Amino acid sequence: MFVLVNLKAYPCDGPAVARAVREVSEESGVRMAVAPQAAQLETIHDTGAETWAQHVSPVEQGSHTGSTLAEAVADAGAVGTLINHSERRLRLADIDGALSAADRADLETVVCANNPAQVGAAAALAPDAVAVEPPELIGGDVSVSTADPGVVKDAVDAATAVDEDVSVFCGAGVSTGSDVAAAGELGAEGVLLASGVAKADDPEAVLWDLVSEI
């Protein structure tokens, strides 16, 4: 199971969260990573935590002011990137372009999708993983793995039908060890979460709870 903590643009202490992620990951043996704002990538990488980007742009080196260049993300210490998060939607052609950019920079990729049908379409582009995240549950207190477990199972089936090598992650509302366990039982190989950790008074305690049933 892979636990990927997206810090979004929350006013949290990113390095403190990253240090907690590193410590819990090392002690539990569970793979965990942090996705901070692009400007904090190097700072988070310096904590020793596995570091991911929240986004890379579908561009090559050149005249692309305001873009997030995959090579720059990798140089800052990121080993992977989210693509097409519900708060940073891309057209299908741009998802494909972002995947190509990530491949150039040797970044691992997770493409986010709203539903099983989109999971299948994303899997056809051959990312490393696809994350199913119904928008209405993002940032809430109810996990998709418990609110609508069929969505997770159908997402796994949709991805497998297209490419058995594409892993499926579960996002939206994940905040407890029970959520993570439920996701795993439904076939997910990872979880994405944000507010459950980034907004917590004690992020380390939340992280330990997340891995408690793995």
Rank of each mutant, 00 (worst) to 15 (best):
M1Q: 13
F2M: 15
V3I: 15
L7C: 10
K8A: 12
A9V: 13
P11N: 12
D13L: 11
P15K: 09
V17C: 07
R22E: 13
E23R: 15
E23Q: 14
E23L: 12
V24M: 10
V24N: 04
E27D: 14
V30M: 02
R31D: 14
A35K: 03
A35M: 09
P36E: 07
A39K: 12
A39R: 12
L41A: 02
E42Y: 09
T43S: 14
D46N: 15
T47R: 05
A49V: 10
A49C: 11
A49Q: 10
E60S: 14
Q61W: 10
G62N: 02
S63I: 06
S63N: 10
T65C: 05
T65V: 06
G66C: 05
S67E: 15
L69A: 13
D75S: 11
D75F: 01
A78K: 00
G80H: 04
I83A: 04
N84I: 04
R88E: 15
L92S: 12
D94N: 05
D94G: 04
D94S: 06
L99M: 05
A101V: 06
A102E: 06
A105P: 02
A105F: 04
D106A: 13
L107Y: 01
T109N: 03
V110H: 02
V110Y: 03
P116R: 06
Q118R: 10
V119G: 01
A121M: 12
A124T: 09
L125G: 01
A126M: 10
A126K: 15
P127F: 09
D128L: 04
A129G: 06
A129Q: 10
V130L: 02
V130S: 01
P135K: 06
I138W: 03
V142A: 13
S143M: 03
A147G: 07
P149C: 09
V151S: 00
V152K: 00
K153V: 13
K153H: 12
A155C: 01
A158D: 05
E164L: 03
E164A: 15
S167W: 07
F169N: 02
F169A: 03
A172K: 00
V174R: 00
A182K: 11
G184M: 12
E189N: 12
G190N: 08
L192T: 03
S195K: 08
V197Q: 09
A200C: 07
A200T: 09
D202E: 14
E204C: 11
V206T: 13
L207F: 08
L210A: 08
S212Y: 04
